[in-house]
Amino acid sequence: MVQSTLLNRRKFMQLLALAAAAYPLSGLAGSRQQALASDSVSKEEPWLTISAVQEHLFPAEKNSPGASDINALIYLQNMMVTPDFDNEKGELIHNGVAWLNDLAKQQHSKTFIQLDSTTKEKTLRRVENSNAGSRWLSTLLTYLIEALLSDPVYQGNPNGIGWNWLQHQPGFPLPTENKKYFKIGKNRYRHTKA
């Protein structure tokens, strides 16, 4: 437990450093901590933009859940502080937000969240045209799909809302809080040199 907490803490600090570099004025550090502590969706960047992108990529409809219904943002935030999370991926996720908002400002003098749905779509398709932009969107889609279909213990798919929508029958037994994947055989995550 101690080791895993430490690793979480280390990863978390690295993420903060990365995010702070991308958003020097956003006051992100405080809000990030708050988001994790309270599990509430942060109203600060970059999460505001990411949340809007997630909702666009996976919109709520009358009879089917959307990004916020499946806790997509909280799921992503949780995954970004797991011990095996790849720092480069964290960097990509943050950088993508900057590219997207730069593009939106350049073309429409607005931030992404201020755009209407059609313009959002056009802007995201433009982002997709670059390799890095495509990787960024693909990464966000991956975490959306995981939030839809992974076990609720990871805080996406609340009460199995994604499984129910798709009539998916999960297996058993299902993981418990103490048996999340990164708590099993955790010496795997010693990235120490021998």
């Binding site: 095996d84 995981e146 279909l149 992974s150 076990d151 213990v153 990871y154 999960p170 297996g171 058993f172 037994p173 299902l174 993981p175 418990t176 048996k179 999340k180 994947y181 990164f182 099993i184 055989g185 795997r188 995550y189 990235h191």
Partner: peptide, 22 residues
């Protein structure tokens, strides 16, 4: 690991290196 560590968790089995090295 034993029976007590095995759950039907796709993240553990198939999306992260839990039973195999990083």
């Amino acid at each position: 690991l034993t029976e007590k560590d095995f759950y039907k968790d796709e993240l553990a089995c198939c999306r992260h290196s839990v039973y195999t090295p990083q």
